[in-house]
Design a protein around this nucleic acid. Sequence first.
DNA 1: GCGACAG
DNA 2: ATCTTGTCGC
Length: 238
Amino acid sequence: MVIIMDTPGMLRCDDALRHWPTDEAQARAVQDRLRPRVRLDEPGPEPGFDGTVVGVDVAYDDARDVVAAAAVALDARTLAVVDEATAVGRISFPYVPGLLAFREIPTVLDALARLARVPGLVVCDGYGLAHPRRFGLASHLGVLTGLPTIGVAKNPFTFRYAPPGPDRGATSPLLDGAEEVGRALRTQQGVKPVFVSVGHRVGLDRACAHTLRLAAHYRLPETTRAADSLCRKALASA
DNA sequence: GCGACAG
DNA sequence: ATCTTGTCGC
């Protein structure tokens, strides 16, 4: 069912899924066990690299207990859509702040595995390092797949920030106390910033550069807009 | 104990 | 995330 591409540093995703936690205590233990495998020492692919940037997103129908995920691949140079894939499944975990990954990742892995090419970068809805235990959705997905990942969130979660300057590209630190866990990034003039954090194998500067480049026309990156639209369609026809 | 809380 | 109409503005 889940066939993940051959990536350096990847984990046995099928094992991870077989031992998927069923309660919050188990889930937190999984995060604590996997967190040391996050790699924060790589700059990550440079904007315009030769490969694909893949956006992933998930939509839910709690009444039917159905979840649909989408993965949309854009050419990193032209930002043209070159591939897309979807997957549907059962809801595997409730929404608990701090444990979002356990709700989203199984179906996202299914969708990712149906892409024709290995992504060069995966853009997630949500957070990576900016997480109570420094292991958000983007970091978790990165560690399981071995792929470079970043998180782009629409809300500051529990973190603090001063509003970035008014111009497109302005940033300000996203803070957990005194620690910078990500950045608020103004992607368009006159709109609320988005909140960028690193997931796995990507530095914060490049994470922001990719996000800004992907958000040339709207507040949110094209990757997440495309994935959001596709997973809703997949849910409607599931 | 109470409120806050990615999606 | 999701429930949901019209409406203000470019």
